[in-house]
Design a protein around this nucleic acid. Structure first.
Lengths: 110, 110
DNA sequence: TTCATATTTCAATAATTATCGAATTAAAGT
DNA sequence: ACTTTAATTCGATAATTATTGAAATATGAA
């Protein structure tokens, strides 16, 4: 991943409503959640939510599918993982000083 | 970590010059680098760099120490790790769907 | 003390981003 | 066809953020 892509992804997540939104959808899983339900759950106006959904979708963090009048949004996990990979590789000290960067939580089971 | 802290950390990294700056310092290691050298290396004006250093420092991503006229900046790895931990725990699907979130790059050696 | 260097601070400006209300599109039910 | 519901788009406004030039602080050297 190039640095510009990482900046875009970080920027998409660097906002309270959007991070809450993404967390919610991760929790909800691959089936996703309809826009209206998300708006209600997060307590944001439908048009404001639409703006944030677009923001996250445009960087690839969300996928959507239409079902009748409803549009379901779900996380694209591989994009999130590529960001995590970028950050661990480029912004952790593993490459230079093995001990500086402690094992991330996801490696607990190792 | 609370969501607000995560948003602040993400926001601090969600900017081209700052992400490049943080990467550079991670590469440079715990001894850090003087502000002037960083500015020259990144090709940004000293006062602009100062602004970005402050931004990163204020969220805890950078530590600094003064040596004579020079101020050396270095990453605070544990803060970065706590962000990575937050993201893997809250924004990856491991908790719900074990397979959705692939093993991050940092776990290669496991 | 005086001068040069390293860095930060300040004020102004430009650019980007978030929120709101109103209007619009589009699908489904009557 | 008409109405309701789901969601987005648009335009305006407010708020935040980045960049620049000039001035200030502070350390070390002559």
């Amino acid at each position: 991943m190039k640095i510009d892509a990482a900046v875009s992804l970080l920027g998409a997540l660097a906002q309270g409503s959007r991070l809450a939104l993404f967390r919610l959808l991760v929790q909800k899983g691959p089936d996703g959640m309809a826009a209206g339900d998300i708006a209600e759950r997060l307590g944001v106006a439908p048009n404001t939510l639409s703006f944030h959904l677009k923001e996250l979708s445009s960087v690839g963090l969300l996928k959507s599918r239409q079902e009748g009048r409803f549009i379901y949004y779900a996380p694209d996990f591989k994009v999130m993982n590529s960001l995590l990979a970028y950050l661990t590789e480029n912004c952790c000290a593993e490459s230079t000083t093995a001990t500086e960067c402690s094992t991330p939580a996801s490696c607990k089971e190792c």
